[in-house]
Design a protein around this nucleic acid. Structure first.
Length: 372
RNA sequence: GCUGGAAUCGUCUAGUGGCAAUGACAAGAGACUGUAAAUCUCUCGCCUUCGGGCUUCGUAGGUUCGAGUCCUACUUCCAGCA
């Protein structure tokens, strides 16, 4: 069983520490999105320097290239990428939802490779096998997101997710035995809770997952902070408190992190910070700015004077504006560094505030300023 | 000096009688939440009560119902020859 120690709780919120074979994660924590085994535009030494504790890669992408067997041969994702710290893999379930031309049956999802059009069938079993080969510390169960907000669709996807979870667990147990025999480090499985915006479906899904011998939980299918507090309240009151919970894909908006932590989520991952950065949108305590705007051409102040990242300590908005206008790679690097630092630090401060009992005031101060 | 060729929105460019005029870049703005995303969308002559109105394709004339497109002259640039 995955080791998760809770240091303090406050309502549904908790401060804790997850121990993986590749190291510890102090929670709540923001996990960097490293879909292809890299956080776009950043090196892992930069990620470490900005305080990132863990990364999340994607089974689908790594399955296609370079292939999970190769990563296994290289010694697993943490070693292959030289990240050498805790790793998660997403199951590929999200790709069923987001890619065009995916056919879903009870068996699994027929994908078409975006690289060369090759067709293959991703099943719960194959996802588990692939994740074991990739060798991340924490795996996500292969799940299905509904393609509409329609209740019937949502319920169907949820039920399929549950049936697939059982298959994932069976395969995971097989892989666990195999690993033991081969003296490979243990790897852990999170079940994924679905149910969309329907609170009773969420409750059903949480109850289903709660009874399974999994190591933790992913909460999936969330796309907006609207109603997220109510949903998390329902789900996290049902999920056993002694196991960690990961809020899948949320964190582009700082409010997501506050709501997520307050209502009992321990880790977050999101592509938003780095994608926004590459596209010129930067977080500041006073809200998001678009560094490409002409008004920054002659603004020689830092992006966020309270930020301790490399960008804000050394460079001006004017310089970053110039890098973006001239499409210099370094602009995207510095912006990514800043945004990633911003979210990591925000979650770290949430952790500190929970510990000191100042969460409410920190939250109010931050959100009222950011969304003013 | 002669002989060809060319001048179109900030730049390059499409356009061979129905055109406020193509495309790219630049510029201005917006979007982005388990990443087929260093991507995508919108605006980009002036004015507008959003119906439309006005002024545009080097300059000046002309032909034509209609000219960026055809003709004449001029101006500038390019190439070749002297």
């Amino acid at each position: 069983m995955l080791k998760f120690e809770i240091e303090k709780t406050s309502g549904l919120a908790r401060v804790g520490e997850i121990t993986t074979p590749n190291g510890k994660i102090k929670t709540p924590a923001f996990v960097g999105a490293a879909t292809r085994g890299t956080v776009k535009a950043l090196t892992f030494s930069e990620m470490r320097a900005l305080g990132s504790q863990a990364i999340l890669a994607n089974t689908y992408h790594l399955f296609l290239t370079p292939g999970s067997k190769l990563i296994e041969e290289a010694g697993g994702l943490a070693k292959f990428s030289a990240w050498n710290a805790p790793t998660f893999t997403d199951s590929g379930g999200f790709q069923i939802f987001s890619l065009p031309d995916v056919k879903i049956t009870e068996a699994g999802a027929k994908f078409k490779s975006y690289l060369n059009g090759d067709k293959f069938l991703m099943t719960p079993e194959l996802s588990m096998q692939t994740q074991w080969e990739i060798g991340a510390d924490i795996h996500m169960a292969f799940d299905q997101l509904a393609k509409s907000e329609n209740r019937a669709d949502m319920e169907r996807a949820m039920n399929r997710t549950h049936r697939w979870l059982d298959r994932c667990l069976l395969e995971h147990e097989n892989q666990k035995l195999l690993a033991k025999k081969n003296k490979k480090p243990e790897q852990f499985l999170y079940a994924v809770v679905q149910g969309g915006t329907f609170l009773n479906l969420r409750a059903t899904s949480a109850r289903y997952a709660a009874e399974k011998p999994v190591d933790g939980f992913g909460i999936g299918g969330v796309f907006t902070a609207d109603g997220m507090d109510e949903m998390l309240k329902v789900v996290n009151q049902i999920l056993p408190s002694e196991k960690p919970r990961h809020l899948l894909g949320m964190g582009q908006e700082p409010r997501d992190l506050f709501i997520g932590a307050e209502f009992g989520c321990d880790t977050f991952d999101c592509v938003g910070p780095t994608r926004l950065a590459r596209n010129g949108a930067l977080y500041t305590l006073d809200g998001r700015i678009n560094i490409k705007n002409s008004k920054y051409k002659t603004d020689f102040s830092p992006v966020d004077s309270s930020c301790d990242c490399e960008l804000c300590k050394n460079y001006s908005k004017s310089y970053l504006n110039h890098l973006f206008r001239t499409n210099e790679i370094t602009g995207k690097v510095l912006a990514s560094l800043h945004n990633e630092r911003f979210v990591v630090r925000t979650v770290d401060k949430i952790r500190a505030a929970l510990l000191s009992g100042d969460f409410e005031s920190y939250k109010t101060d931050f959100l009222s300023r950011y969304y003013a």
